[in-house]
């Protein structure tokens, strides 16, 4: 059975939906971050998949960029998270409501 582009896209869509679901329903910021990573990776998968059926390697190179940016983003996001935890003694996103009042 030949694996066509549709399979890749369907997997990527599944991953994106799973990530979005995590981001939307999880209270803990760490899980939210995980969800974001998942969504990023879904996008990466798309890039690689399209690249497979394209003679140029632009999509793959773009995916590598995206991975690097994701790594940096994850590092910064975790650092922010640590500080938030230090300040609020909690990593629950609903507790971060100081600006609201």
């Amino acid at each position: 059975m030949e694996i066509t582009l549709t399979y890749y896209l369907m997997l990527s869509a599944f991953l994106l939906c799973a990530g979005l679901l995590i981001v939307l329903i999880k209270k803990n910021a760490v899980f939210v971050l995980l969800g974001i990573e998942l969504m990023l990776n879904a996008a990466n998968l798309n890039l690689v998949a399209f690249s497979k059926f394209d003679p140029s390697l632009d999509g793959q190179i773009f995916a590598i960029f995206s991975v690097v940016v994701a790594a940096a983003e994850a590092a910064i996001a975790l650092a922010i998270l640590l500080n938030i935890y230090k300040t609020y003694k909690s990593s629950d996103l609903d507790d971060l409501d100081t600006l609201n009042y």
Binding site: V23, L24, I25, L99, N100, Y101
Partner: peptide, 17 residues
């Protein structure tokens, strides 16, 4: 405006989606 701009990030995201 703050009343509107509630602290529920995930709610907002949900609405966004």
């Amino acid at each position: 405006y703050t009343k509107v701009h509630a602290a529920r990030v995930q709610n907002q995201l949900l609405w966004l989606v």
